[in-house]
Amino acid sequence: MFGSISYSLKQGIIQLFRNKGMAAASIFSILAMLLILGMVFVISVNVNMFTEVVKQDYDQVEVFLLDKTTQEEAEVLMTKLTAHEGVKAVEYRSKEKALEILKDRWGESGYLLDSLGRNPLPASIMISVDSLDKASEVADFAGTLKGIDDIQFYKETVEKLTKITNFLQASAVVIMAFLVFISVIVVSNTVKLTVHARQREIRIMRYVGATNWFIRGPFIVEGIVMGVISALLATGFIMFIYNKLIEAVGSQILAIVSTPLISVEYLTINMGIIFLALGTAIGVWGSIVSMRRFLSA
């Protein structure tokens, strides 16, 4: 077993060097598809991060309490709300606290509020929800409770954002699936060419009494090596471009949408792993599938 693995390794690498043209063509096609995939990946990761950050601002529901609602009643309400599914945290905001926040927001004109005889602001409960999708449901639930005057949450904004995010994520998945599909066809055809060119060789090997796995071994090694080379090239290339991009527009983007771009390190590690897995899988898959016809009896 070990003997045949080392045989496959050696032969696979020798084979690769003796078929430089075919190898280059295969590596190029895997590389091209990984690059396009990488771009989609970079964009979708960043859009995701952007929406996550934005969502955090909107994942709250504010429940205003009637003035006659006592602190004890408010606490009962809070317990009920905390127990509800999808609720992350609740926080009581007294009338005084609400006024303070408003004063803060008004800034220099805040003193105007001092002249008010009676505090007109209601007390409220701030509910943080697990995810945006839960906000609407939590709000509905809060509406059924007693002692509540009004409920406010960014329903429309939230719904729009959710729609956009879902759409973006769905299109990213579709685009990636499509790309994988296309590249798999391209790669398998390239490998088929290689195998076809070696059809004669394979027949001869069978005459000499080689088993199918013995014949496949070097081709699989070849596939793995080509996959790994493409993955490394693609990762390096995307990193280089991405680094330049961050240098060029990173700070502008931070200023405009107040979210940073995903860091180069994070991207390198994750994309490197995905590329290696994908590149190797395509290489191996290409070898096995495209040889099937030539290895049947």
Partner: peptide, 13 residues
């Protein structure tokens, strides 16, 4: 089909 390779090894061609 599995045993053909073993068999072929006994024959020179």
């Amino acid at each position: 089909n599995r045993t053909i390779p073993k068999f072929r090894r006994k024959i020179g061609i």
